[in-house]
Amino acid sequence: MQAKRVTFGGGIVPYLLLAPQLAITIIFFLWPAGQALYTSLFAEDAFGLSRQFVGLANFVALFEDPSYRASFAITVVFSASVAGISLGLGLLFALAADKVGRKAMVYQTLLIWPYAVAPAVAAILWWFMFDPSVGVVARGLRAIGIYWNHHLNGTDALIMVILAASWKQVSYNFLFFLAGLQAIPRTLVEAAALDGAGPWLRFRKIVWPLLAPTTFFLLVVNIVYAFFDTFGIIHATTGGGPGQSTTILVYKVFKDGFESLNLGASAAQSVVLLVIVIGLTALQFRHIERKVHY
């Protein structure tokens, strides 16, 4: 990693400049993460009086636990649906906005603000719309014979949180796809049009491949979002229920740690999540490096 060619001498100055950032990093990030790793290797009794080294037993127990495996499956369905819906709609709106040209700015303003809505707040909006007794959408569904009840029906609850999480994320994907589309040279598209390629063929053969780096980057970002930033969506509305139907991994680590006080299992879950983040971050950075080499 390079520094500037011209630098200052400084002695102790650079250390002082770095001190606040490093202090917070060590106290609130590295030390707790180390603790999580350490705790995950121990079993502790319910009163916290004694602990015993158990090696990887917590992890084995975790993956043998049907409720954890169920939570994993729910998280995969949840993340794939959120990423699919919000990427799809983001791309659709970006293509449309690119097509309408100069008037796109107006639509941009009208489409990007949901980014600023907190996930928990977005969830409450959808929770309310679908509420079986007062929600407008639930009432509409009832009129066509669908009895929606996310308090009792696990599938309904899962669909509701997926819609809420996607609603908030569309604006982000829209912005990045639009920027990606506007970076594609007009001449390429025009040349293809001259050669007689219609809109669909041009999209498939030119736009989609050139957009691939953006799509890949957004895919990773959306998965990270669905895995980690959606805690509030679950906690503010379904509370993981009904039953266990909306207990995604980040919610489970919270519940097992703070409500069931199962420290070893919670720490092991933290470590599993940590491995997932490291994997996703590595993916993201490999992508950035490739972009640099183009």
Binding site: L22, T25, A33, F258
Partner: peptide
């Protein structure tokens, strides 16, 4: 500035990217 541990400091800061609250919640 050029100083010993410059690159170490950079990596320490970099690691925080991989440690959202959710993965170190209890500690």
């Amino acid at each position: 500035f050029r100083f010993p541990f410059r690159v170490t400091a950079f990596w320490l800061i970099f690691i925080t990217l991989m440690l959202p609250v959710e993965v170190r919640i209890l500690p």
